[in-house]
Measured scan of single mutants.
Amino acid sequence: TTIHVGDLTLKYDNPKKAYEIAKKLAKKYNLTVTIKNGKITVT
């Protein structure tokens, strides 16, 4: 599972963990989490 945050690309083997991290990042920086085709993007 890949999380895209701006220019950063973070890879995680565990999709659930990746989603949790994405949610935390989104909350911290007041951003939105988008999931599309298995890719998690924080914008």
Rank of each mutant, 00 (worst) to 15 (best):
Y19D: 04
K36C: 11
T2Q: 07
Y12L: 05
I35K: 07
K27A: 12
D7E: 12
T32Q: 11
N14R: 02
N30E: 06
T32R: 07
Y19P: 00
L10E: 04
T9L: 13
K24T: 08
K17C: 08
V33Q: 00
A26W: 02
T43R: 12
V33C: 04
V42G: 00
T1Y: 13
K16T: 12
L25F: 04
V5P: 02
T1Q: 06
L31G: 05
K28S: 05
T43G: 13
T9E: 15
T2Y: 09
K39S: 14
V33W: 02
T41R: 09
I35M: 09
A18W: 04
N30K: 08
E20P: 01
I3N: 02
I3L: 14
K23R: 12
A26Y: 02
E20T: 07
A18K: 00
A22K: 00
D13V: 04
T43P: 01
K28A: 08
N14W: 08
Y29T: 02
A22W: 06
T34D: 07
D7K: 13
G38V: 03
T1K: 06
T2W: 05
K11V: 15
T32V: 13
N37R: 07
Y12H: 03
L10F: 09
A26H: 03
T1N: 09
A26F: 04
T41Y: 15
L25Q: 01
I3V: 13
N37Y: 08
T9N: 09
I35V: 13
H4V: 15
K28V: 08
N14I: 06
I35T: 05
T43K: 10
K16Q: 13
A18C: 06
K11N: 15
A26R: 03
I35F: 07
K16R: 10
L8C: 15
K24S: 10
D7H: 13
I3T: 02
D13Q: 06
V5G: 02
K39Q: 15
E20H: 08
K23F: 11
V33P: 00
V42M: 15
T41K: 07
A18V: 03
D7M: 08
K11R: 13
G38C: 01
K23N: 11
D13K: 08
K27P: 01
K24F: 13
G6L: 11
G6M: 07
T9Q: 12
A18Q: 01
E20N: 08
V33M: 10
G6C: 14
K27S: 09
T43W: 10
T41G: 03
V33N: 00
I3A: 02
D13P: 10
N30L: 05
D13H: 05
A26E: 05
I21M: 12
L8P: 02
K16M: 11
V5N: 02
N14D: 15
K39H: 15
N30T: 04
T34L: 11
H4M: 13
K11P: 07
L10H: 04
T32N: 10
I40C: 02
I40T: 02
T41L: 14
H4S: 10
T34S: 12
I40N: 01
Y29D: 01
K16V: 12
K39F: 14
V33Y: 02
K27F: 07
P15E: 12
A22V: 06
I21C: 10
I3K: 02
L31K: 01
G38Y: 05
N37A: 11
A22L: 08
T34I: 15
H4R: 14
D13M: 05
N14G: 05
I3M: 06
H4K: 13
L31R: 00
K23P: 00
Y29Q: 01
L8R: 07
L31D: 01
D7A: 11
T2V: 12
T34G: 05
